[in-house]
């Protein structure tokens, strides 16, 4: 019964939203649109004001897209890596993978150690895959370096 009431209320909200938004996709406005969900209910996708867009536009105009050259990973500055930021952690992970592929095991080991130190205080659950790959790389690089000596 309670579920039915909630559903009826939700449908009412959707109908009101439909009237409010007007669902005009053909005019230049704030981009707020109505879409249908899997359940059949309508949902409002939030708009974006001109000011909000301007912030994004300026940021992208200033920074541009990410440029990935064949050597972009080698230019990474370790001291600027923020372990809390996923894209930063990814850079370090990509660099270690790239060095491993290039068979530069000593440098790879340095990067791996740096990563393991930087990420050590993060909840392990959050970085499980990254952590296990770094540990794997440490073990493999150590083995390969020992075999070389």
């Amino acid at each position: 019964m309670l579920r039915k009431v909630i559903q009826m209320e939700a449908n009412q909200v959707s109908k009101e939203a439909a009237v409010r938004v007007g669902n005009d996709k053909t005019s230049f406005n704030n981009g707020e649109v109505l879409v249908s969900k899997g359940s059949g209910k309508l949902k409002v996708r939030k708009g974006q004001t001109e000011d909000e867009f301007e912030v994004q536009r300026r940021q992208f105009a200033k920074e541009g897209p990410v440029i990935n050259t064949l050597d972009w990973l080698e230019k990474i500055e370790y001291d600027k890596i923020d372990p809390e930021v996923k894209s930063d952690r990814l850079k370090l992970e990509n660099l270690s993978q790239n060095l491993y592929y290039k068979r530069q095991y000593a440098r790879c080991l340095e990067v791996v150690e740096c990563g393991l130190t930087l990420f050590k205080d993060l909840p392990r659950k959050r970085i499980q895959t990254e952590w296990s790959e770094l540990e794997y790389l440490r073990e493999q690089c150590t083995k390969k370096l020992e075999a070389m000596n």
Binding site: R45, F53, Q56, F60, S87
Partner: peptide, 19 residues
């Protein structure tokens, strides 16, 4: 488009390029 124009993280993961 909706994500790209609103979200810097989406841009970061959706579009990388080079010359």
């Amino acid at each position: 488009a909706r994500e790209f124009v609103r979200n810097g993280i989406a841009r970061l993961s959706d579009f990388t390029t080079n010359n």
